[in-house]
Nucleic acid binder design. Structure first.
Lengths: 204, 204
DNA sequence: CAAAAAATAGAATGTTTATTCTAGAATGGT
DNA sequence: ACCATTCTAGAATAAACATTCTATTTTTTG
């Protein structure tokens, strides 16, 4: 019986790093960035506290890696959405997914944690802002095409504004899921779809 | 020369308590709930660390008091808004204020901090949720009247849904002010006004 | 003005923390 | 099979922290 529980498809260092990030993700979600200790993370990751410092310079580097990893997922998601849809109605159909995802308490908690940290940690702020820039740019391309196709000719500022309104709506759901966890998701989806349609087809 | 820098209009204990809350507010904003220490707070409040424990049982009690105080302000604001406007257009005019207030970085940071803490601290969650319940109930009254006056007859769920969408939009601005601090506020106000009008006068 | 009460400072405590250090085990190339 | 390199554990360290305790000053009261 070979002692390898998994074949080394990836170099061992990568596996170890991933273990740490997974454990850190769990801890950060339940205790917050500053409430989670290296001791806890190391216990969950199944290694000694000191060993973590062979992979990350310090705790802030772990935080930054978690933030970057999380935003990587968001970026991948929005990229696939951009590839799929040229049409307004495709977007409207995706609203249900988007609402559900943003209301999910696990994701909402970590998201808020990241934003709170970005509000006071310039390093994290830079990571968050550069990811947001990528999202906005890609959304702007899609939105401009869509509006041109339906005969509207908007200036850059209006497109950018529409993106801000859309982003605020969906990102605000994290806040709602904390403040009112019992909210009726199906009604919210319906009203979001209406609001999206209005926003995308208005004259201005 | 009387040594009283301020006449004791309020009992001294209240003044001391307020000093602590003000100092804690500053610290929490800049370091976060768990990053701020009693030593820092006491230094800014101008008193010894131990003395703080004559006014608050422990650090969590200070957090809870800050949260309650902050939500008290929000409650007062929404109450005045509810008193002022029966009309849709009054609300639309208030949008600029609301957008500006929610984008203010100082307020946004503390708000996100509170939400992140509520996501993992049941005590704080209860404070946040009960304040939100009050806001929603009062907004529901206003909204129902407004819709009835313009000939619509909505069920409870639809009213509640509209409130969720409105709340998500405004609360999402905190997130936007972190992710994209350079966003164009005037365009956002204009689009928010349009979206609000559409939402409040739609048929469904 | 004296004595009781409240307010306050600041040192002491004991725990927890992030981080570093030391030494031992596994691994891989030759 | 050997040696260099990497990996890993766990103890050691030093600082920071929330909280408690003790003593002192200030205020109030009779």
């Amino acid at each position: 019986m070979p002692p390898d529980s998994a074949p080394p498809d990836q170099p061992r260092a990568e596996v170890r790093r991933a273990q740490i990030l997974a454990a850190a993700g769990d801890c950060f979600r339940s205790k917050g960035f500053h409430g989670a200790s290296i001791a806890q993370i190391s216990k969950i990751a199944g290694m000694s506290p000191g060993h973590i410092y062979h992979y990350f310079e310090n705790k802030e580097a772990i935080i930054a890696a978690i933030v970057a990893q999380d935003l990587e997922h968001v970026l991948a998601m929005t990229a696939s959405l951009r590839a799929a849809c040229n049409m307004k109605e495709a977007m409207v159909e995706h609203v249900a997914d988007g609402v559900e995802r943003n209301l999910e308490p696990r994701a909402a908690g970590l998201n808020l944690e990241i934003l709170a940290e970005a509000a006071r940690n310039p390093h994290v702020a830079e990571i968050v802002r550069s990811a947001d820039r990528v999202c906005r740019d890609s959304l702007a391309l899609t939105l401009r095409d869509m509006r041109r196709a339906s005969g509207h000719d908007d200036d850059e500022a209006t497109i950018a504004g529409m993106i801000e309104v859309l982003a605020a709506m969906f990102e605000g759901l994290a806040s709602r899921s904390i403040r009112n966890p019992d909210l009726d998701r199906s009604v919210v989806v319906r009203l979001f779809q209406g609001a999206l349609r209005d926003l995308l087809s208005q004259n201005s």
